[in-house]
Design a protein around this nucleic acid. Structure first.
Length: 471
DNA sequence: AAAAAAC
């Protein structure tokens, strides 16, 4: 959501016929012009149509559905007399807890000058405060699926009056195995309702889900290209695996990064890197699924406030999180899933600002980089970092035959690296030496074996989708 | 192979 110049420069929020209270909230936030997805989505949602939206976060998606929902709720007062004067009329589902909180914050801000009530419910936190708020009555609920069902079972909430359903990051919810929960939730809703589904990708599974849950949807698509190519400068450093930690520390110091998210593929890796950076005097916190919800929220909060410089995260933070003015994202590991690379680097370069996406990787991850480059249809600049040895096996073509004693080069890693910290003297921090990699030798036999085993479609999801009713 | 989400 932003005022960045776009093709709808002449369109203003005031043109949509939104209630004055809503426009006032937008004015409070300094928003005048809708983003492309908002310009498309708002009129369609106001018409009461179902929507299938293909949009990354950072495109203003949340306002795109929140604003017209609030408008519709205001325009059509509830006809219900009970049980509460404020029955739940709009339900917004998100895959992660942090995303739920963020969407809820937005909804609250847009509805600030209205009488509408909203709340957020998600797991990992005490049920009681959520229960009390629900029992007092709210028109809009933002939730993660599991906790919502928990509240339903405990009769803290009725979904019988829901008129509008939003499934945010629907592809992610499928990935996470939420389909059965989604099915259960939808069975609790009135048949007649408006459905909005947003997804970053248009996979066959998502299309199937849309075909099952949506009625004659209008498709809205915002090109993904501007999410990566234009504003985010991407670079990769190939370094020995055991040097990755030092390289990351060096990058933070030399570039004087004050706000950076570092992605790790594992929870343990995230915690270790965070601890190591802290020991090196860099203010860092980790956020991942093994942390308590309080710790997760505290870390995110401290990062947003600038109290910590580095947030080391698993992919729990890869999607949806909107941290304004984030100048840089570092991949401590290349993601196993190329799609996740796009989501991760999408955390920077938001709202028209430029951003840097730096990845470190080692020899064994060449394949992952190749997958990423294939997906984003561009070659990522490869660079060497002064002061750090390139890969132990060398860059490019001069790849020696596999050494038999390789494992001895990888002793059990001590808590602190035994090697002295990298040289930092007189190194131009911006020193980049791009190189053209020679054509990577493709080991066909190995690859065939690898893909043959790994490319099995997700049978569970497919099976479940197959069982969905046609609406 | 890993991550996320209800208790």
């Amino acid at each position: 959501m932003s005022d960045t110049p776009n093709n709808n420069e002449q369109v203003r929020f005031a043109d949509f016929g939104l209630a004055p209270e809503i426009l006032r909230a937008l004015t409070d936030q300094g928003y005048v012009h809708p983003t492309p997805i908002q310009a498309q989505a708002i009129p369609i949602v106001l018409q009461g149509r179902d929507v299938m939206g293909a949009a990354q976060t950072g495109t203003g998606k949340t306002a795109g559905f929140s604003l017209p929902i609030i408008q519709l709720l205001l325009a059509h007062a509830s006809t219900s007399m009970s049980p509460a004067r404020h029955p739940v009329r709009a339900l917004i589902l998100t895959p992660t807890r942090e995303l739920a909180v963020q969407v809820a914050d937005n909804v609250k801000a847009y509805a600030a000058h209205t009488a509408l009530r909203s709340t957020v419910v998600f797991g990992g936190m005490d049920m009681k405060p959520q229960t009390e708020t629900l029992r007092r009555g709210v028109e809009v609920v933002i939730a993660t699926p599991g906790r919502l069902l928990d509240h339903v079972e405990q009769k803290n909430i009725s979904l019988a009056q829901v008129q509008m359903l939003v499934m945010d990051e629907a592809d992610r919810m499928l990935d996470m195995g939420f389909l059965p929960d989604l099915q259960r939730i939808i069975n609790l809703l009135p048949k007649k309702r408006q459905n909005l589904m947003f997804s970053a990708t248009f996979s066959p599974e998502i299309k199937k889900l849309a075909g099952s849950f949506l009625t004659d949807p209008v498709t809205i698509e915002v090109a993904r290209s501007n999410a990566t190519a234009d504003k985010v400068t991407q670079v990769v450093y190939k370094v020995p695996e055991e040097q990755k930690r030092d390289v990351v520390e060096f990058l933070i110091r030399s570039r004087e990064l004050k706000q950076v998210i570092i992605f790790s593929n594992t929870k343990i890796g995230a915690s270790r890197l965070s601890r190591s950076l802290e020991q090196a005097g860099i203010k860092a916190s980790a956020i991942h699924g093994d942390k308590t919800q309080q710790e997760r929220m505290a870390a995110l909060d401290a990062f947003k406030k600038g109290e910590i410089e580095v947030l080391v995260a698993t992919d729990v933070a890869a999607r949806g999180l909107d941290i304004s003015d984030l100048p840089c994202v570092i991949n401590y590991d290349l993601p196993y899933n190329a799609e996740d690379y796009v989501h991760r680097i999408g955390r920077t370069g938001r709202a028209g600002a430029s951003g840097d996406a730096i990845s470190v990787f080692s020899d064994k991850d060449e394949r992952l980089l190749a997958d990423i480059e294939k997906l984003i249809k561009q070659t990522v600049t490869r660079a060497e970092l002064a002061g750090f040895a390139p890969s132990s096996r060398g860059f490019g073509r001069e790849r020696p035959a596999r050494r038999s004693g390789e494992s001895e080069a990888r002793p059990e890693r001590s808590p602190r690296p035994s090697s002295p910290p990298p040289r930092r003297e007189k190194v131009d921090p911006w020193f980049l030496k791009p190189y053209e990699p020679s054509v990577a030798p493709r080991k066909e036999a190995v690859n065939t074996v690898a893909t043959g085993g790994a490319s099995k479609p997700k049978p569970k999801v497919a099976a479940l989708l197959g069982g969905l009713p046609k609406q």
